[in-house]
Design a protein around this nucleic acid. Structure first.
Length: 164
DNA sequence: GCCAACGTTGGC
DNA sequence: GCCAACGTTGGC
């Protein structure tokens, strides 16, 4: 099983929108970056876990988790004239762009802001926290995913003292 | 709204 | 294939 982070601007599609969607599931369409597409097309599998990230938000934050429920397939919005992500080079015969389906897993009790994430030692090398990181689909290490879940549950600093 | 980072485009 | 111009992302 692999772990991912998907970015979305909550103004256009938020985790609340996902919660309200039929079957709490949505097509992750509109990705128009080759590296991001390749991750979806070549590496994402049904059952993979996803961190759901709100970019251009106040504050920017990981808002919850989701699960990949359908592997990559052609993204029909690419050849839909007038669509915000219309690509004149794409067609049903040459789709170019792909999408997956994701289903909401959980909304965190409190979103984990970039600020808070930067304070977690286990996340030091996380792609999201890299300066200039712009990829909207990025791989996440298991250790990072686990650290995020732990932070979301408010476990940090509580429990067994480090010295024991 | 600024601007750094980085992807894409297109002339050559 | 180089690279300057341009567009986009996204934190601040």
């Amino acid at each position: 099983m692999k772990y991912w982070l998907l970015k979305t601007e909550p103004e256009s599609f938020s985790i609340q929108d996902l919660a309200a969607a039929p079957n709490r599931t949505t097509c992750w369409d509109g990705v128009r970056n080759y590296q991001a597409r390749n991750f979806m097309r070549d590496e994402m599998q049904v059952g993979d876990r996803v961190l759901f990230y709100h970019s251009n938000a106040n504050p920017p934050a990981i808002a919850g988790t989701a699960i990949v429920v359908r592997e990559a397939c052609p993204d029909p919005t690419a050849w839909k004239r007038g669509d915000a992500h219309f690509d004149p080079k794409a067609s049903p015969d040459n789709p170019i762009w792909q999408m997956v389906d994701i289903q909401l897993d959980e909304i965190f009790p409190a979103p984990l802001s970039l600020d808070a994430l930067r304070k977690v030692p286990a996340l030091k090398g996380m792609e999201l926290l890299r300066r200039g990181s712009r990829l909207s689909v990025q791989p996440v290490k298991k250790s990072e995913f686990d650290a995020v879940l732990k932070l979301a549950k408010g476990d940090e600093g509580i429990g067994r003292p480090k010295s024991c």
